[in-house]
Design a protein around this nucleic acid. Structure first.
Length: 643
RNA sequence: GCCGUUGUAGCUCAGUGGUAGAGCACUUCCUUGGUAAGGAAGAGGUCGUGAGUUCAAUUCUCAUCAACGGCUCCA
């Protein structure tokens, strides 16, 4: 019997039923057959050797395809498992999936502790096995047989996995001496794996539950050629140079001190300049958008957090209370309750709404010690916070205005690598994880989605990620080393109004509870500046740069003129200083370049005679001479426009 | 919080059971040099902290703190 195979370009060819994807590839070209790792048959990724029995569409997967890479790395995990088993017989395996950059396998090593040395041995063993071109053989197996196999092995982990599987859907894959319960698919044989790097060892809770046993997770990455591995390692090193922790130190932006405490960053003068510029931007923007600025204390009584519902639920994430006059006070972990109290301080009419309160509020959160990460995850943070109290009718417009503000900011900072994530509730968890207001959930979720659609903002929707009190939009970004963070957040809250008994009088003279929008488009200073450091690789635009201009005299003879120029710059509001050290011009330039100062003005005899400076732009080199007046006007405009 | 790794000068890093070294940075002197490192000299460390073993600990052991890589968490 013959079947029809449809290719991605729409071409259709006839084959005998039972043909494998590999045979089909060979029928096109041997070269293609040599380079493919798996095939997508009717949209499902499958082994190349599996027979196709009926009409189907086919797409060959190479290394460059996302699914091709995943298959390659998944097979690499099996290869690593084989190496682990051969070096440490008796170990038990949990799961070994591909991840974004490679793969891992979770292993119960019995009593053995894996060391860096072992990684080297494992790599060598993997290379040895890879060279043998071991085929990955797929075998369908009954559940009973599978259970019998792992019972004999005494492997409680795989037995646990089997519990969740149905008879008829269970397959084993074997390569060399290693057999694993696995859905597949796999690459044809281990020979494709040419370059191997086991990157690190880490603990991981079984099934991700912190009450379970901790397994050893070994991470690795493999490539079809050594060159690709070399490129990958070079890329990692580049990323390290962008790491905000390194840049923050090199550029004297922030520091930590053991006596101050973990997760409590100290903002140095350079970092503080950036903070002040960001706050200036926020103030301008919020004032134009009709916000009122407020200031609130860093602590509040326990009773307020009982009202808000943060206690006892959120207590683990707050610093422990301090006792005073028989009362317990907490450091605030969020600004909302304080703002609600300001709202409540005076009676509100619908004419007062929307009522918008903004504050760069200082919050303290007791993040778990293992979670702290440079500026990205800290225990003291300054949030670009605001709360908007509005009627249901105003909600759409208000939420849209906030979204527009986000987009405006992102344009200023050139932020383009982010994902807007619309987090929705799960109806079955109403009353537990989510406040029990099914109607409000549906209405607000629909409105929030509509805002994103109308503004043409690309977004993804995720279920069961909403806040307790309403849906939200998070802006997700990635740090230099690849970790994902929420940079900014925009949340709907239809619960706090009730809890704090907030109300306004509507046009019919009835009391109504306002809807609340929590928003923090610039996130926190900590995370935002950490992000900006990496985003700009330390090369801040002029308006944010802590040092905007360094004036570099050719020699001491021109020091007075250099100082005169610096004074003029400062008078014009430009952050400038003179490099008055007794060094050669080359050295002064080099150091200013390394400190990523946007502009360097070289001044010598020529410049002094013409009341000019030779302008050098960081990373670009000499731009030629300009008169002092002219360059001041240019730089003032550049900083003013936040270019 | 859990698993693992690390902790030596301001920074990057060597090194050793007999109380420490390099490069850069810093200070002083010489040099006054035109677009990414001029030269010389000098100063600087209780080897994260505490305890134990030892004649002797920066080195070995334990504890503790912190950072790093993950896990968990992340209103």
């Amino acid at each position: 019997m013959s079947i029809q195979i449809t290719f991605p370009d729409g071409a259709v060819r006839q084959y005998d039923a039972g043909v494998s994807s590999l045979d089909i590839a060979k029928s096109i070209s041997e070269g293609l057959a040599r380079n493919i790792l798996a095939a997508k048959v009717n949209g499902e990724v499958r082994d190349l050797t599996r027979p196709i029995e009926a009409d189907a569409s086919i797409q060959f997967l190479k290394w460059d395809d996302k699914d091709g890479k995943s298959t390659f790395w998944h097979s690499s995990a099996h290869l690593m498992a084989e190496a682990v088993e051969s070096l440490f017989p008796g170990v038990k395996f949990w799961v070994g999936p591909p991840v974004e950059n490679g793969f891992y396998y979770d292993i119960d090593l019995g009593g053995h502790k894996l060391t860096e040395e072992d990684l080297g041995k494992l790599e060598a063993k993997m290379k040895e096995l890879a060279k043998q071109n071991l085929q990955f053989n797929r075998k369908e197996i009954s559940k009973d047989e599978a259970v019998a196999y792992f019972t004999e092995k005494g492997d409680e982990y795989k037995l646990d996995l089997l519990q969740g599987l149905e008879d008829g859907s269970i397959t084993f894959y074997t390569q060399g001496n290693f057999t694993d319960l696995c859905r597949g698919p796999h690459i044809p044989h281990t020979g494709f794996i040419k370059a191997i790097k086991l990157t690190n060892i880490a603990g991981a809770y079984w099934k991700g539950n912190e009450n379970n046993k901790m397994l050893t997770r070994v991470y690795g990455v493999t490539f079809p050629s050594q060159k690709e591995l070399d490129d990958y390692i070079a890329m990692l090193e580049e990323a390290k140079k962008r790491d905000h922790r390194k840049l923050g130190k090199d550029l004297s932006i922030f520091c930590f001190d053991d006596d101050v405490g973990p997760g409590l960053p100290l903002w140095m003068p350079n970092g503080t300049i950036i903070i002040e510029e960001l706050e200036k931007l926020a103030k301008e923007t919020e004032e134009a958008a009709g916000y009122h600025r407020v200031v609130t204390p860093h602590i509040a009584k326990e009773s307020m957090y009982l009202t808000s519902g943060h206690l006892p639920y959120y207590a683990d994430s707050m610093f422990p209370p301090m006792e005073m006059d028989g009362e317990r006070y907490y450091l605030k972990a969020m600004n909302c309750p304080h703002h609600h109290k300001i709202y409540a301080a005076e009676p509100k009419s619908y004419r007062d709404l929307p009522y918008r309160l903004a504050e760069y509020g200082t919050c303290y959160r007791y993040e778990q010690s293992g979670e702290l990460f440079g500026l990205m995850r800290v225990r003291c943070l300054h949030m670009n916070d605001a709360h908007i109290y509005c009627t249901k009718d105003q909600f759409f417009q208000e939420f849209k205005a906030v979204n527009d503000m986000y987009l405006k900011y992102f344009k200023i900072f050139g932020v383009d690598k982010y994902v807007m994530r619309l987090s929705l509730h799960s109806p079955e968890k109403l009353g537990q994880k989510y406040v029990n207001e099914p109607q409000l959930w549906q209405e607000t979720e629909a409105m929030v989605r509509q805002v994103l659609i109308e503004t043409g903002t690309p977004f993804v929707e995720v279920q069961d990620e909403a806040a307790f009190y309403g849906p939200k939009i998070d802006v997700q970004i990635w740090s230099a080393i690849g970790r994902e963070f929420t940079l900014a957040t925009n949340q709907v809250d239809f619960n706090s109004g009730l809890k704090f008994k907030l109300s306004y009088t509507n046009a019919n003279n009835e009391a109504e509870v306002p809807l609340i929008i929590h928003r923090a488009p610039l996130g926190t200073h900590e995370r935002f500046i950490g992000f900006l450091l990496e985003h700009y690789a330390g090369k801040f635009p002029l308006w944010l740069a802590p040092h905007q201009v360094k004036v570099l005299p050719i020699s001491d003879k021109f020091l007075p003129f250099a100082q005169e120029v610096t004074a003029k710059l400062k008078k014009a509001g430009i952050r400038a200083s003179t490099d008055d050290r007794n060094e050669k011009i080359g050295k002064k330039i080099r150091e200013a370049e390394l400190l990523k100062v946007p502009y360097m003005f070289v001044v010598g005899e020529k410049e002094m005679n013409e009341q000019s400076v030779s302008v050098r732009r960081q990373g670009q080199g000499d731009l030629g001479m300009k008169s002092v007046e002219e360059i001041i006007n240019l730089l003032s405009a550049e900083a003013e426009n936040r270019d």
